[in-house]
Design a protein around this nucleic acid. Structure first.
Length: 259
DNA sequence: CCATAAATAT
DNA sequence: AATATTTATG
């Protein structure tokens, strides 16, 4: 029996160019697949169970949802999910305070960002292409990042692969690359300075356990919570806020913002 | 105004 | 892909 499929058999770095016919056997063809806008429930059945008219989801809707997810991530407000408990968590709650600068509406904004929403018309799609929101690396998001990086090992931990493994919708390669840069900087600071992690720097990193590269890179248990699509989205990662980060203090502490 | 986080440019 | 530089944010 040599049917076993090892992890290394997957084409991780490649784009999946090589298809495995056996795996595609029995899968519905493109024609057989219901279109995105097609109703999953027959109208009569829906009526019988008094199911409210289904929301038809188009590609645009999906893309919009993706954007919304990002927005939600960024703003820390409840996204598409209506039944979930809402968390009002803002990252920068520890600013000096006495400085009265632009302050966002605290109570009733739901998911809409304070940055201007730029909308430019895209000729090809006809759809509005919004400028991507500035991604906020929540502890949960970072946790997943660290998890994946540790899992891949230092050799395979490149932005593209990491992004794919994290499988967070809306997350770009650039996002990962940028974060990876900081992360490596942080790791170097630890290893070169001899292991005295200064608590004042890199809140996110210091609050997350450092991956043990020196160890055998055997894949340890990793609990990926995923949805039915196999896609974790940024929204589920912000469910609870800072896991091990109680205070999230301003680094300088004595940074005088007033002049 | 400063320090930092993230984005963008090389 | 890595690193340097710039920009936004707290």
């Amino acid at each position: 029996m040599r049917e076993e499929v090892r992890m290394s058999d997957y084409d991780v770095s490649g784009e999946g160019e090589d298809r495995v016919p056996e795996w595609e056997m029995g899968l519905p063809s493109d024609e057989d697949l219901a279109s995105l806008s097609h109703s999953l429930i027959p109208p009569n059945l829906a009526m019988a169970f008094s199911i409210s008219p289904e929301n038809i989801r188009t590609i645009q809707d999906v893309n919009l949802a993706s954007e919304t997810t990002l927005s939600s991530l960024r703003s820390g407000s409840s996204g598409p999910n209506t039944s979930s408990s809402e968390e009002e968590d803002r990252v920068g709650s520890s600013s000096p305070g006495s400085d009265s600068k632009k302050q966002k509406k605290t109570s009733d904004d739901d998911g809409v960002v304070e940055e201007g929403d730029y909308g430019t018309e895209d000729a090809t799609t006809g759809r509005k292409t919004m400028k991507r929101q500035r991604l906020v690396w929540t502890p949960q998001l970072h946790k997943r990042f660290v998890d994946v990086v540790a899992h891949l090992g230092i050799k395979n931990a490149v932005p593209k692969t990491i992004m794919q493994m994290m499988n967070v919708e809306g997350l770009t390669r650039e996002n990962v690359a940028s974060h990876l840069q900081k992360y490596r900087l942080y790791l170097n600071r630890l290893t070169t300075e001899g292991g005295g992690p200064s608590p004042s720097s890199d809140k996110l990193f210091s609050s997350t356990q450092m991956p043990v590269y020196a160890h055998h890179m055997g894949m340890q248990e990793h609990h990926h919570h995923q949805n039915h699509n196999g896609t974790a989205n940024a929204y589920m990662m912000q469910q609870n806020k800072f896991g091990s980060m109680a205070s999230y203090p301003p680094v300088g502490g004595g940074s005088a913002y007033e002049n």
